[in-house]
Each structure stands twice: as structure tokens, then as C-alpha cells.
């Protein structure tokens, strides 16, 4: 779900970069000393996740993990994802320099939205928590697909078709990400609950 260089027009790229910069500033402000290591670990996980392929159906999509990153980091997902995307651009030639801003928005905005939407449900009863975690993983990718469609609106001129294609191609990944996120939350609730948002202790 990366947008290559040269596809988008200048205004879209600039507004994407501005939004990403704002998000990153908020994220860095909220990133306190205790969460630096966590942010680094999740940035590394996000960096590597896109190499893990899920060969389902005709298309083979890969893990994205932005829902999990958002749930665990909140606003700090912005700097973490920005760093990971910059390194993916440098080492794997995914995306590019000019599209770094818009690609950060595509990945990090849904992450933060999921955190804001579901972060408070993680320490409710297990059923609610796992359902919320699944929804996090699932909806983060869905939202990313919609943002890709929106940012391509000025070039491909058919929002519904593009967004529909991307979302249809990512349905298996959405389900897998939902399951992965739920498993991670279940594991962390037992082992390291203080890593999760809204830790009462």
C-alpha cells in the first residue's frame, strides 16, 4: 500500500507531508522516556512486517501491523512509522522520498484512529478486549485502503473503484492482522500489561 514517486500531484504530496509532520510532532511530544524502547521495537516490527508475505488467493499481500503499532504507541505511532517507512524507502526502495509524507499518513493515521477508538477497551473483560484488538488490526488496514483511494482521487479519478480494489485485495490481510493483533493483546495482557494503553496500575 505504498504510493510510488511521480504518481501524485504536488499539492497532495505537500499536504500529506504537512499532515505527517504535524502528527510526528505530536507523537514526539507524547513520547516520554519510558516508551522510547517500545517505540523502537514496534518501529522495527513494522519495518520488517512488510516482508512477511501472506500468500492467499491470487494476490499475495503482506503484513502491515499498523493497527498493532497504533494500539501500543498511540500518537507515537507517527514517528515510529515515519522512521520505518524512511528506512524501507532507503533499503528496499518501497515508496520514495517525496511520497514519504503521504505514505506516513496512509499508515499512521489509521493507527492513531484505532488507538483513540479502541485503546480504552483493552482492560475491559477479555471478550471485549480481544474483539477490540481484532477490530484494531482489521480496521486499520481498511482505513489505510480508503486513504490510498482518497489520495489517488486526483490522479485516477475513480475513488470507489480504486479503494474497492485495494480493500478487496487486502481482506485476507485484514483478517490475519486482526487475529495477530488479538493474539498480541492477549499475550501482553498476561505478561506485560503495562505495555498496553489504559493500564490501570
Amino acid at each position: 500500500m505504498h504510493i510510488s514517486e511521480g504518481v501524485l500531484s504536488g499539492p497532495v504530496l505537500i499536504s500529506g507531508a504537512a499532515l505527517a509532520a504535524a502528527g510526528t510532532a505530536i507523537g514526539l511530544k507524547k513520547l516520554d522516556y519510558d516508551h522510547i524502547a517500545k517505540a523502537g521495537m514496534l518501529a522495527a516490527a513494522f519495518f520488517v512486517a512488510s516482508l512477511i508475505h501472506v500468500p492467499i488467493g491470487p494476490s499475495n499481500a503482506h503484513l502491515i501491523l499498523n493497527g498493532l503499532v497504533g494500539l501500543l504507541l498511540g500518537w507515537a505511532a507517527f514517528p515510529a512509522i515515519l522512521v520505518a517507512l524512511a528506512l524501507q524507502g532507503a533499503f528496499f526502495q518501497f515508496g520514495g522520498i517525496t511520497t514519504l509524507g503521504i505514505n506516513t499518513i496512509i499508515m499512521a493515521l489509521p493507527a492513531v484512529l484505532c488507538y483513540l477508538g479502541f485503546g480504552r477497551m483493552i482492560f475491559k473483560s477479555p471478550q471485549i478486549a480481544y474483539l477490540a484488538a481484532f477490530a484494531c488490526g482489521f480496521l486499520a488496514i481498511l482505513t489505510s485502503g480508503i486513504i490510498v483511494g482518497l489520495s489517488l482521487i486526483f490522479t485516477e479519478e475513480n475513488f470507489l473503484e480504486v479503494a474497492g480494489l485495494i480493500i478487496a485485495a487486502h481482506i485476507p490481510v485484514m483478517i490475519i492482522e486482526g487475529v495477530v493483533t488479538a493474539i498480541c493483546v492477549a499475550f501482553l495482557r498476561k505478561v506485560r500489561p503495562e505495555m498496553l494503553p489504559g493500564y490501570p496500575g
Partner: peptide, 25 residues
Amino acid sequence: GPTVGDILAGIGYILGLVGIAAYVH
């Protein structure tokens, strides 16, 4: 495609950034 070297280099950069952030803090 991306090689194992690329992947480890990326992770190394992230660890380095974490170190810088911790130092600044």
C-alpha cells in the same frame, strides 16, 4: 529484492535512533 543485510541494517538504524532518543532524554 531486499536482502537479509538490508533488513538487519534497517533494524540497526532503528536501534541507533532509540539510543539517540534515550541519550537526549
